[in-house]
Design a binder for these strands. Structure first.
Lengths: 156, 156
DNA sequence: TATTGTTATACTCTATAACTATA
DNA sequence: TATAGTTATAGAGTATAACAATA
């Protein structure tokens, strides 16, 4: 019996559950674990999905650019994209006008995987929000989006 | 200029911000960083505070017991408590009836640090919730508490 | 000079397993 | 035997710095 199994069956102490930040951290942790679990069937982890989704939004993006949006540094991005390219999900070629950069794009396979996994990820979202009404969900989502946005000044 | 600084100035891609789980993860990450920052003045990190708060709730607790509540394994707990004991914040002595266990308690200093840092942590909570009304805050808090509770079956 | 991408390295956190002491 | 705590070790994940290629 692994210690790890024991750990995930325990609730948060009341003194911490009172703090929104700790409660939130625990929810996020649980969601991330569930995400890793459902993405395992696709040979991916949470952060691989994040890259695919980012590229699904904005088409040719450099490795650094994706890293900045995802708060992942350059060195880490190399191996991350290595994995996605190796599975044929991302097309990685030099930008013709400036050969220092890559033009990262989703391949057809990458776009397909993104579409198919998206609904699974939405299922994880659903487990987080299941106790809220549609209106409340929108309010929460909006409030958190503003918190994230407040710490962003790269919107120009 | 450190790469790290660049990373924290960037917003989440829209495709990810649409997913509650990714939005939540980013908010939790920002909150955790801010927490580490404010606790640095006390020579602590987020997880030290978590231990103090747990002991503040329930008085004599074994190391393993704290670890289970916090999802931290035994080996990691050793060094965590080493640090808190070294700073005189936690009293660590063997349980008389069963000397395998510790009876971990807050010292007076530990209780004082907990009280003084609690308001700082509540300040971090406030930044997360600032866009919500009192009623909405309660709803969100309750909804997330239920998500965390759902994954707990160690309540007996 | 400045930036992307790469590599190698180090550091942090955590997981695992073997040990001891107690029961 | 079973569990708490300890230690040592190994494994992720990530940060740092040096480097090459390009501008």
């Amino acid at each position: 019996m692994k210690a790890h199994e024991d750990l995930r069956t325990t609730g948060l102490p009341a003194a911490l559950a009172r703090h929104t930040c700790f409660l939130l951290a625990r929810v996020a942790q649980q969601a991330n674990e569930e995400l890793d679990r459902v993405l395992e069937a696709w040979g991916m982890k949470t952060r691989h999905y994040a890259v695919l989704a980012t590229l699904g939004d904005e088409h040719p993006l450099s490795q650094c650019e994706v890293g900045r949006r995802l708060r992942v540094d350059r060195a880490t991005m190399v191996k991350l994209v290595d994995g996605l390219e190796g599975r044929g999900l991302v097309d990685r070629r030099r930008k013709p006008e400036d050969r220092r950069y890559y033009d990262l794009k989703l391949t057809d396979a990458g776009r397909e995987v993104l579409q198919k996994t998206r609904s699974t990820v939405e299922g994880v979202d659903e487990t987080i929000l299941e106790n809220l009404t549609e209106e409340q969900r929108a309010e929460v989502h909006d409030a958190f989006a503003r918190v994230v946005g407040r710490n962003s000044n790269a919107q120009d």
